[in-house]
Amino acid sequence: MNDAIARLGAGTLTFLATLGRSGHLLIRSLLLIPGWRDLARISLQIFSVGVKSLVIIVVAGFFIGMVLGLQGYTNLVRFGAEAALGPFVALSLVRELGPVVSALLFAGRAGSSLTAEIGLMKATEQLAGMELMAVDPLRRIVTPRFWAGFISMPLLAAIFTAVGIIGAYLVGVSWLGVDGGSFWSGMQDSVDFQKDILNGVVKSLVFGFVVTWIAVFRGYDTLPTSEGISRSTTQTVVHSSLAVLGLDFILTALMFGELN
């Protein structure tokens, strides 16, 4: 019994210390204001974080859109309400599926590779070497990756959503014969730019921030062994997926909670 309490206490302390270290990393790397040289580095990181995630984002978005079109149609057509397919698809994608699913894919594709990359640099003493060459590894390694994740995520989510809507259009309108005009105009009638689209962008900004933060911190804080790196990589995917889903609920409650 005593043992269990002691372990709970130790676990809490470890958790608090981890949180403290990650906050320290966040503050220190964000306080560095990017200069011209950093911009080139950020762009290079957008390539490895954003561009390389594009294929999985586009393919997944397309299929999810097609499934939504198919499911929406088969359920709505029973009430003769297939004209509501446009709003149904658009609202699901813009508000929830776009930001959330693309953030989950981002955590799996880009987050894990960020952790592994930084962890490997730590294990092979590249970070320590950099520090002893009077170069701050936070500025050189962590900060550009941070900004790249933060910039890439909303763009990826927007691409995901747009491709998903196109997929739903192909299934619903071209294949199942829903009227194209009512598909688009129904959407425009029910999707609000400020309330839905901008809130979706805010969500994906928050998700991009959190996923990149977790990924970068896990890499920077890893045990410098191969076992440590593989564990950190797993932790990145698990923790950032859970963080995305939890935050999504909180954000949704804040944004759409008050019913009109």
Binding site: L54, L155, I159, I165
Partner: peptide
């Protein structure tokens, strides 16, 4: 990539929403 992202946002703005 950034152009595609902004194009998607514009599409969401003009084609999908009000």
């Amino acid at each position: 990539f950034m152009l595609a992202g902004f194009a998607a946002l514009v599409m969401l703005g003009y084609k999908v929403s009000n």
